[in-house]
Structure formats: structure tokens, C-alpha cells
């Protein structure tokens, strides 16, 4: 039973990893990588490691996503202020 759950989570994880690299928009791939971290933290709960699951859920899918988005916004604003091509 738990194996089926892990297989389903793994399929979702692999497809979101492929989606993260195949999509055109960077924001989509950032959110997909956050979703991968969230699924990994669920698997940590199944592996009975609650400490690691808490850390991965808060750092991997929370703060890393925020840091990525902030960095993306900062890079965009630098490109715009230099008069480069905006997309």
C-alpha cells in the first residue's frame, strides 16, 4: 500500500522535474522545483524522519523558492534598468 503511494509521488516528482526543464517561463520551473522539494519532504515522513521532513518543507520548498523569486526579480530589474531586452 505504501509502495503504491511512493510510486505515485515519484511519478509526479519525475514529471515535475522534466517540466521544470522543458517549460519556457522561469517562474514555472521555480515553482516546479519547489513542488519537488515538497514531495520529497512527504517521502521523508514516510521514511520516518520527521526532523528532515520539517527542514526540507520549510527550507527546500519555502525559503529556496522565495530566494529564487527574489533573485529573479532582482535580475529582471537590473536588465530593465540597463535598457536591455525585457521579456
Amino acid at each position: 500500500m505504501i509502495n503504491i503511494a511512493i510510486i505515485i509521488l515519484g511519478i509526479v516528482m519525475i514529471f515535475s522535474a522534466i517540466y521544470a526543464f522543458r517549460t519556457k517561463k522561469i517562474i514555472n520551473s521555480i515553482i516546479a522545483s519547489g513542488a519537488i522539494s515538497l514531495i520529497v519532504s512527504v517521502i521523508f515522513i514516510i521514511l520516518s524522519a520527521p526532523d528532515v521532513a520539517m527542514t526540507e518543507a520549510s527550507i527546500g520548498s519555502g525559503l529556496t523558492t522565495i530566494v529564487f523569486l527574489f533573485a529573479l526579480g532582482k535580475a529582471r530589474s537590473k536588465i530593465d534598468s540597463k535598457g536591455g531586452k525585457d521579456d
Binding site: 526543464f21 522561469i26 520551473s29 521555480i30 520529497v40 521523508f44 521514511l47 529573479l72
Partner: peptide, 20 residues
């Protein structure tokens, strides 16, 4: 950015291997 995202996915995979 996608290269860094690749690094972060690699990181998650290594954590999963070690914990399992």
C-alpha cells in the same frame, strides 16, 4: 536560473538517497 534549479533538484535527490 534553470542550471541552478538543476543543482537544487540534484541536492534533493542526494538527501533522499542518504535518508533512505
Amino acid at each position: 536560473f534553470k542550471m541552478v534549479i538543476g543543482f537544487s533538484i540534484l541536492d534533493s535527490g542526494i538527501h533522499l538517497v542518504i535518508v533512505s
